Amino acid sequence: TGQSYENMVTEIMSMGYEREQVIAALRASFNNPDRAVEYLLMGIP
């Protein structure tokens, strides 16, 4: 849902990432938050 997506974005942003980076990582990871954080740390393949 939209609210849980926003919660994911906010939670990952709280780790120090910009909203645009978080959204790009979530898009690349098909909204998998664990993989999105991994992409933010290691780069999107």
Rank of each mutant, 00 (worst) to 15 (best):
N31T: 03
L41E: 15
I44K: 14
N32R: 10
M8P: 02
Q3V: 08
N32Y: 05
E38P: 00
Y39I: 12
T10R: 10
G2M: 12
V22W: 00
R27M: 05
E6N: 09
M42F: 09
N32F: 02
V9T: 02
P33V: 11
V9D: 00
P33C: 05
V37I: 15
V22T: 07
V22S: 04
I23L: 06
R35N: 04
F30Q: 14
M13S: 09
R19Q: 06
I12Y: 05
R35S: 12
E6R: 03
R27H: 13
M42P: 09
D34H: 08
A28D: 12
N32K: 11
Y39L: 11
Q3M: 11
I44Y: 12
T1A: 11
G43V: 06
E6L: 04
A36K: 03
E11W: 03
N7G: 12
E6K: 09
T1H: 03
Q21E: 11
Q21H: 10
E11K: 14
Q3S: 14
D34A: 11
F30N: 15
E18D: 11
V22K: 02
G2E: 13
Y17I: 02
L40V: 01
V9F: 01
D34G: 12
D34P: 07
E11P: 02
S4Y: 07
E38Y: 07
T10N: 10
I12M: 08
V22D: 00
M8R: 05
S4G: 12
T1P: 04
E11Y: 06
P33I: 06
E6M: 05
T1Q: 08
Q3R: 14
M8L: 07
I12T: 02
G16C: 14
E20A: 12
R27E: 09
R35Y: 05
S4R: 08
T10F: 13
N7S: 11
E6G: 04
Y39D: 11
R27C: 04
R19M: 01
A28S: 10
M42K: 15
L26D: 01
E18P: 10
L26K: 01
A25D: 01
G43M: 10
E20P: 09
R19P: 02
A28F: 10
Y17N: 03
L26E: 03
I44L: 13
T10D: 06
Q3H: 11
Q3A: 12
P33Y: 11
M42T: 13
V22L: 01
I23C: 07
N31M: 10
A25V: 01
Y5K: 07
N31K: 03
E6A: 04
G43R: 13
T1I: 08
G2Q: 05
L26M: 07
S29L: 00
R19V: 01
Q21M: 11
L40I: 02
I44Q: 15
Y39E: 10
V37D: 00
E20R: 08
Y39N: 13
P45W: 03
N32T: 05
R27D: 13
M42E: 13
A24D: 12
Y5L: 06
E18A: 09
T10G: 08
F30K: 14
Q3E: 15
F30G: 15
D34E: 14
E38Q: 08
E18L: 06
M42S: 14
E6Q: 06
Y17Q: 00
A24R: 10
A36L: 00
R27N: 04
D34N: 15
A36W: 00
M13C: 05
A24K: 10
L26P: 02
L26H: 00
T10S: 10
L26T: 00
Y17A: 02
E38C: 06
R19E: 08
P33H: 14
E20C: 09
V9I: 08
V22Q: 03
N31Y: 03
S4E: 12
A36Q: 05
E6I: 04
G2K: 13
E18V: 06
S4T: 13
S4M: 14
V22F: 02
M42H: 13
V9A: 03
I23F: 07
L26C: 01
G43S: 12
I12R: 01
E18C: 09
L41G: 15
Q3Y: 07
F30A: 15
M8W: 05
M8D: 04
M8T: 11
N7V: 09
G16D: 12
M42V: 08
L41A: 15
Q21R: 09
G43N: 15
S14G: 15
